[in-house]
Structure formats: C-alpha cells, structure tokens
C-alpha cells in the first residue's frame, strides 16, 4: 500500500540532492545586475548589517570600504562573473570570531533584506543563498 509512496519519495529526494551551484554560467551574475548591481547590493547589505544589533559588534574594527570591495569581488566570482576574489579564505577571515549559527542566520536575513530591497527574483535569491549557506562550516564556531 505505502510502497509506491515511499518509492516516489525516494526518487524525489534523489532528484533533489543536486550538486551545489557550479558557476559554469554567468546567469546568476546577470540576475544580480552584474558588477554594478552586485556592488549596490553589497552596499545595502552592509547597511543592513550596520543596523543589526545582533551582529554589528563583529564589524567594529572592520575597514568598511575594504569589506565592500571584498564582498563585491567574492559574490561576483561566485555568481559566475568575470572577477577573482583577492581576499583571505573564509576560515582565515572568521577564525577567532566565534560566530554562532544564530549570528550566521542574522547575516543571511540581512542579505535577504538587501535582496528584497533590490527586488531580486526569488530564484536568484535562492541561488545566492545556497552558495553562501555552503560556507556555514567555514564561518561558524571558529
């Protein structure tokens, strides 16, 4: 009786376990508005962080100009754009910061808020969030 249901669920689950975004095309880069759009999005993102009392303390000593440049480069590269990220790797950047999962989630929410303000389509939002979520283990509890 329930066997067909289980089979179809297994198939569905199987089909959903897809490799994370391989930046083999630049469609996400385009959806984010290329270099200019990403730069503007990262500016809004940083403003959201600055207003977020849950995590702003992690950025007290941060050079904001540089943070903006690095984020823009990184997102440009990860979204398949013609950039290469010149900053340190995520583990190096976050070691000693003791970022919690709750703080990581706060950052995700700030990015969502920024993407909403820039009216980025849900599909592009999800693609970018999936790329960032994969960095969770390189950021949290270090």
């Amino acid at each position: 009786m329930f066997r067909p249901v289980i089979m179809s669920l297994a198939l569905l689950l199987g089909s959903m376990v897809m490799p994370a975004q391989a930046a083999s095309d630049d469609s996400l880069y385009q959806a984010l508005g290329q270099q200019q759009g990403i730069s503007a999005l990262m500016e809004t993102f940083i403003l959201e962080i600055a207003d977020d009392e849950r995590i702003v303390h992690h950025f007290e000593k941060t050079d904001i100009e540089r943070l903006h440049r690095m984020l823009t480069e990184q997102i440009c590269e990860l979204s398949g754009g013609p950039c290469s990220y010149s900053g340190d790797d995520m583990v190096t950047v976050h070691t000693g910061m003791n970022v919690t999962t709750a703080e990581f989630n706060a950052l995700v929410e700030d990015l969502i808020a920024a993407m909403e303000q820039h009216e980025i389509a849900v599909s592009a939002q999800n693609r970018l969030l999936a790329i960032l979520a994969a960095m969770h283990k390189e950021v949290v509890n270090l």
Binding site: M16, M18, Q21, S123, A124, N126, R127, L129, A130
Partner: peptide, 15 residues
C-alpha cells in the same frame, strides 16, 4: 531543506 532546489525554489522533505 534545499535552499536552491528544483525550479530554484526552497524545498523541504521529511521522513
């Protein structure tokens, strides 16, 4: 949950 699942939508499955 898959943030970027089929149709670039977030999906959730539970067993």
């Amino acid at each position: 949950a898959w943030l970027d699942g089929p149709f670039h939508r977030t999906w959730l499955a539970n067993i």
